[in-house]
Amino acid sequence: MKKYAFTYSVHQTFSSPITKHNFLLRCMPGTYPFQRSYAQKLTVTPYTAMNCISDVFGNGMYTGTVDKKHTEFTVTATGFVLCSKYLIHEPLDRIYLYPTRLTRPTREMERILESASLSEDPWNRALQLCDLVYRSMTHVPAATDSTPNRTAAEALSSGRGDARDLSHVLLTLLRLSGIAARFVGGLAVGVSQGHSWVEVYCGDAWRALDPTTGGVVEEGYLKIANGPDRGACAKTRDVFLDPTGTVTQTREFTAQVTEHVIRVRDTVPRA
């Protein structure tokens, strides 16, 4: 078991004042069979009351509205997480075998599968496909901030993308080859922004692959949310009233995950 401290923050700047800023945040690592989070703290500025709820995929979310005019919005999440080996035993929901709007397969993807000599064993096949995505696409940090609905097909044809794009391509190929897979949003050691990877259902458990490294996720990954695609795992979503109709916004994401020494009290984390 390892212990990590995390900090994740989002800073939004608007070119002129906005109001009725409705937001949804999925930025706190959750509690899973391999992961326990504790001593968490979430602050938003300007201050507003928030609801803490779960979505249908079991992901924790905070929602709220800032009514007063503002030109800046900052979210900061901090806390600690204890992690053991990344493995989640649970029954399979078969929706993860099928494509979504953002992960529809294309003829190009079918050709990729046909031309690759893939293993019969699902886990080995998943490893091969992860390696294939890692080798054939260029990882560019946060390439799709301006295109939140970028599809797997668009990402593949461009040959480059951020972690979400690479995960979408891998998801699509895995499902096309008959393997259930889901998108995961989270944080990772050594990644200075939010991160994404893919969980693959093999045997009776979910295991994780990271297409940005081409390898198996073992440790140093803090899971925040999972779902059929990035739409269900977005760390932030917001809509606001733009009185002038001309507001432009910029977003800065920063994340830091550091390993800490485990102390005795850490083994009994608060729920």
């Binding site: 249908v56 929706i95 099928y98 494509p99 269900a232």
Partner: peptide
Amino acid sequence: PEEFVFSSPDFAPEVMNL
């Protein structure tokens, strides 16, 4: 067949169990 449900563009997993 589950394929006709889960791959439908009108299937809304967001409302499952509501």
